[in-house]
């Protein structure tokens, strides 16, 4: 299963706008996602925005990246333009529905 569009978007943005190379950018975002209990394959843009708001700045700071706050603000703006529809149904969406009848 390929990585989600939101994940690829953030990785590409980090690679272009910081000193991180492709491997380091993807690794950093994966670590941030793991801390949030999310996966690169299924993360939605709205979930990625929360990660970019609450976890990613600290991860970038710990790697010595300057201007992490403004970098993440740019990322959030970009994520808001992504399509939120589509993708496979996640287990949490199924379990929410199973209890909500």
């Amino acid at each position: 299963m390929p990585d989600a569009e939101a994940f690829n978007f953030v990785c590409d943005h980090l690679e272009q706008s910081s000193e991180l190379d492709r491997l380091a950018a993807r690794g950093t975002v994966r670590i941030a996602l793991k801390q949030a209990g999310l996966e690169a394959r299924t993360v939605a843009p709205d979930q990625m925005m929360v990660v970019a708001d609450k976890i990613l700045p600290k991860e970038l700071d710990s790697r010595g990246i300057d201007g992490s706050e403004s970098l993440c603000a740019d990322i959030k703006r970009g994520l808001s333009s992504l399509d939120t529809a589509g993708g496979a149904e996640t287990p949490d969406a199924v379990f929410k529905r199973l209890g909500g009848g």
Binding site: A36, G37, P91, D92, F95, L98, G99
Partner: peptide, 23 residues
């Protein structure tokens, strides 16, 4: 395993308590 993930999501406001509990 998914319950553990959901608990981490809850810490940043990305999971509803009743869904975490259902897992």
């Amino acid at each position: 395993l998914y319950w553990l993930k959901m608990r981490r999501r809850r810490a940043i406001g990305l999971a509803e308590p009743e869904v975490i509990n259902r897992f």
